[in-house]
Design a protein around this nucleic acid. Structure first.
Lengths: 258, 258
DNA sequence: CAGTGGTCTAGACCACGCG
DNA sequence: GCGTGGTCTAGACCACTGG
């Protein structure tokens, strides 16, 4: 740490160049550390799966104590941005199958079973956005969207119809040279370096249109669960707008608190 | 704290009576502290709204350092069991209107507005449980339930029909001498000392029965959002089984992550 | 074995709320 | 002014992982 023993914090740093501001009416140190690390995640200095430097190294670099770094890291672990493994290090979270399943995909079989459904692409294009898409994805004038729809099935039983819109700016070539795979979030991350960190879902009950009824093998007008989801990056930029309409005869949406 | 300065932890406590086990292949100290405090919450030693002793007092009583108490308390604050106010103290969480609104009641107007709906009781009785109720509420043979149904309205527009079942054991006289008020969780807490700390919801889309359609002023067969919720105490005992069926023409269920 | 994160302590000063 | 929780440091030992 290369710092002299100090009895009083107020004088301890007076002779050092401040890598981190010494907090006169400013943010707490651990939040400044948090912000610095968060910035590096946004900038892909450390990519998903990478190990961060050890707490001691970070503390030395940022000229704070190990405990302060630890508090910042623990906060980010609680947010699911990082994870730690004793004896190994601290790592940047990835969109693994497991994570997708437990963090973002909340549909389960009525027997409690949980698995990612298969997807069948219906159509996919780059095009001009609708007014809603401009609002939701916070698009600049002239910006385009990638828009596609698909049907998702559990054990070959069609169950979900969903429409997805992405800001084309973040996903060049998508929809022209590249087709979307089943696990979208991992695709966004590994191909485009865009990591989804937050999501907000608005859920309601609707009636199946004739077209949806045909795709799902149900009657027109049957009740469907509509999940309208906005996904955002760590710094709050919109990444994806998805509207899923689900036949809940054999599945339901699960929400736990506490 | 009344403890001699100690250079080595392994010998520091050898001459003291252990209020807390000194962790030989046992739980970490802060988890033992957590469990002790949790126990006192379950036993209503400290009731909702009460201030806990200060960190220093707890540390002295339990013969650990203030930092260890702090970690235990912070974990429980993260779980919403406690809250802290700088300069004042640490307090046991209550089921205030605000908390009910933001933690357990996730229905919002489509304009983003959020308020608790009014309730109209339809019927209320103490009776023998159905088989499902025995399962869900983990009832002993011979145990009874309190069961009631109500219609909830936003600005006098009926919107939700819900059926609720409680283990009668936890709520004596309820349904006979006492009628349920609008804010149930606060009622459970203030009258019966039962605090809901956890909930799990299963959500699906269903069709309105003729009876529901009449109550909500919609057509039979219209889509409703069904929320099937189990509520539990801090130590996992079932408190309430509630099935709400909501007209989502003007409202939706909100779920946020990250 | 060395290096990592995990637990625990002790003690400093800061910021807030109240009398 | 005093007591509360909030921040920050320094340093000890524990437990796990890998070579």
């Amino acid at each position: 740490m290369a710092r002299p023993a100090a009895k009083k914090r107020s004088t301890a740093k007076s002779a050092k160049r401040p890598a981190v501001k010494k907090r006169r009416r400013s943010l707490p140190l651990y939040q400044q550390v948090d912000n610095i690390i968060r910035r590096r995640l946004v900038d892909n200095v450390w990519k998903p799966g990478d190990a961060l430097p050890s707490e001691m190294q970070l503390a030395a670099e940022l000229d704070v104590s190990q405990g302060t770094v630890r508090k910042a890291l623990n906060d980010m672990v609680a947010e699911n941005l990082l994870y730690r493994r004793q004896g190994l290090g601290t790592f940047v979270s990835e969109h693994t199958e497991r994570r997708a399943l437990f963090f973002f995909f909340k549909i389960q079989g009525k027997d409690g079973s949980s698995s990612l459904p298969e997807s069948e692409l219906l159509d996919c294009e780059q095009t001009d956005p609708t007014k809603d898409e401009v609002d939701r994805l916070e698009l600049e004038p002239g910006a385009k969207v990638v828009r596609f729809t698909r049907v998702r099935s559990f054990q070959n039983v069609p169950c979900i119809v969903e429409g997805i819109a992405l800001p084309q700016e973040l996903f060049p070539d998508f929809g022209i040279e590249l087709q979307p795979p089943n696990n979208l979030f991992r695709f966004y991350q590994s191909i485009y370096g865009v990591t989804v960190a937050k999501a907000r879902e608005l859920i309601s009950a609707v009636s199946a249109t004739r077209k949806e009824a045909g795709l799902l093998g149900i009657k027109a007008g049957a009740p469907l669960l509509q999940i309208d989801r906005m996904s955002m990056t760590i710094d709050g930029r919109p990444v994806e707008w998805r509207v899923s309409r689900c036949n809940t005869s054999n599945h339901h949406y699960v929400s736990e608190r506490g």
